[in-house]
């Protein structure tokens, strides 16, 4: 699906240097892996073991993708960017799931929804980079990465029906932590 430059600006910055583009790609995957691990850790601590394995698996996938980007990046000069020098359109990278959207009673269905949201944002980020960049190499790489992200989106869409959508009161807790009397 093509994207207009106006739409692309909502999802991606204009990156005309291959090294800078790859620095963003590496950070995107590494930070996604770290966030999934962080979520797995917090679920482990809160005894929600059902979702830990899935978060770990997603972290592993992100690390694999980071490794792929790293191999491509080895051919280029990739600058070190300080955390605040990345040009994400949002405060965090597109595949870093918002930490405040997690819940100690979340289910695998929620985990996959979170992952789907992240992958869709990742896909739009790369598609946007491809539209906005003036550099042919960046365009080519960004298109390739966007296609890969589309495959991840499709995979997740296949996985989601395997897990039933939880009932409306899934977060109800008969022994809630929020008791303050």
């Amino acid at each position: 699906m093509s994207m207009t430059p106006e739409e692309a600006q909502n999802h991606a910055p204009k990156l005309d240097d291959v090294g800078e583009f790859l620095a963003h790609s590496l950070a995107l995957e590494n930070e996604a892996a770290e966030r999934y691990d962080e979520l797995a850790d917090s679920m482990e601590v809160h005894n929600n073991h059902d979702v830990v394995a899935l978060f770990r698996k997603l972290a592993e996938f992100s690390r694999m993708h980071a490794q792929e980007v790293k191999e491509i990046a080895a051919k280029y000069e990739v600058p070190h960017l300080k955390p605040w020098e990345f040009q994400w359109v949002d405060p965090e990278g597109p595949e870093s799931g918002a930490i405040e959207n997690s819940h100690y009673k979340m289910t695998n269905w929620h985990v996959l929804q979170l992952a789907l949201h992240n992958e869709e944002r990742g896909q739009k980020f790369y598609a946007g980079c491809a539209v906005l960049s003036d550099n042919a190499d960046v365009k080519k790489l960004a298109q390739e990465f966007a296609e890969e992200e589309s495959e991840h989106v499709d995979t997740l869409k296949e996985w989601i029906p395997r897990y039933p959508k939880p009932k409306e009161n899934w977060d109800e807790d008969m022994d809630p932590p929020a008791v303050n009397e």
Partner: peptide
């Protein structure tokens, strides 16, 4: 990562303090 210990935070999932640690 080098500045993080191996101790897993026990904050509630979703707590803002995870990001402050990062």
């Amino acid at each position: 990562k080098d500045y993080k210990s191996a101790v897993k935070p026990i904050w509630c999932p979703g707590c803002g303090d995870y990001s402050v640690l990062a």
